[in-house]
């Protein structure tokens, strides 16, 4: 099993307050890794480190993150973002047509050939299962889609730049149960092509879809391992408390 992302001794602090302390873990390729933990434990900060967004904030970062062998701090921000996609909690389609949402990034990277653009749009929409629902109305404004469709569009949009890793920050917390299960199925399909890291505070979701689970509490990585063993037989007392609902 190859590792897509290797995180070594990662620490982050804002204004002398530590948000992440000395985190080391290896995220395997073509697997879904779930990051769980109580609110404010540093899950989102962790994601920001993986796509370099942290460098734009007033944060002190130490440690090293390697993406398939390359130190990400050596990459240009735009190259890193192409390799590591990010989807947010609230679906945020751009106020333009579905088609234009999908070609936004490819055009930025200089793809102007209509056929090629069309192929990308179709392929990625198919991948997210949205294609059949919207194929006749690609010119429709993306803002008019339903919540679940919007989020799938945002995932498809993140895939248009062919990332290696896809990060999702609580992608279902703004959605209803049905849309959530559609997205979960979608993620299971996507892991064949992409490495997926999902931050979630829905423990059931983590148990249902992830292969690996990392439990972060108070900025520390408490436990990391196969999802099955984390949920069934956690090694640490803290993890057990969290999973059984004693806190958080």
């Amino acid at each position: 099993m190859n590792n897509a992302l290797t995180i070594e001794k990662l620490s982050v602090s804002y204004d002398n307050k530590e948000a992440l302390k000395d985190i080391s873990l290896k995220i395997p390729e073509h697997r879904i890794t779930a990051v769980i933990g109580p609110s404010g434990c540093g899950k989102s900060t962790f994601l920001k480190c993986l796509n370099g967004q942290i460098m734009e904030e007033n944060a002190r970062v130490s440690g090293k993150v390697t993406l398939s062998g390359t130190d990400i701090s050596k990459l240009k921000p735009s190259d890193l973002r192409r390799k590591v996609g990010l989807v947010f909690q609230t679906p945020a389609p751009f106020p333009m047509s579905i088609y234009k949402n999908m070609t936004y990034a490819p055009r930025y990277y200089g793809i102007n050939d209509r056929e090629e653009l069309k192929r990308t749009v179709t392929e990625k929409l198919k991948l997210t299962g949205l294609y059949d629902e919207v194929k006749d109305e690609l010119k429709k404004s993306a803002v008019k889609l339903s919540g679940g469709q919007k989020q799938r569009l945002c995932i498809a949009r993140a895939l248009t730049v062919d990332p290696e890793v896809l990060l999702l920050d609580e992608p279902c917390s703004a959605l209803d149960i049905k849309s959530t299960s559609v997205i979960e199925e979608l993620l299971l399909r996507l892991k064949e092509t992409y490495t997926i890291v999902i931050v979630t505070h829905n423990l059931g979701q983590a148990a249902r879809i992830s292969d690996m689970t990392a439990f972060i509490n108070d900025g520390r990585l408490v436990e990391f391992g196969e999802t099955g063993s984390i949920f069934k037989a956690p090694e640490m007392e803290e993890t057990k408390d969290f999973i059984t609902g004693s806190f958080g």
Partner: peptide, 19 residues
């Protein structure tokens, strides 16, 4: 979030502003 989504795709603020 929309602006951050554009950032996350690696697009520059200039591109985001114009598009």
């Amino acid at each position: 979030e929309m602006i951050r989504s554009s950032d996350a795709l690696g697009c520059s603020r200039t591109y985001m502003f114009l598009k």
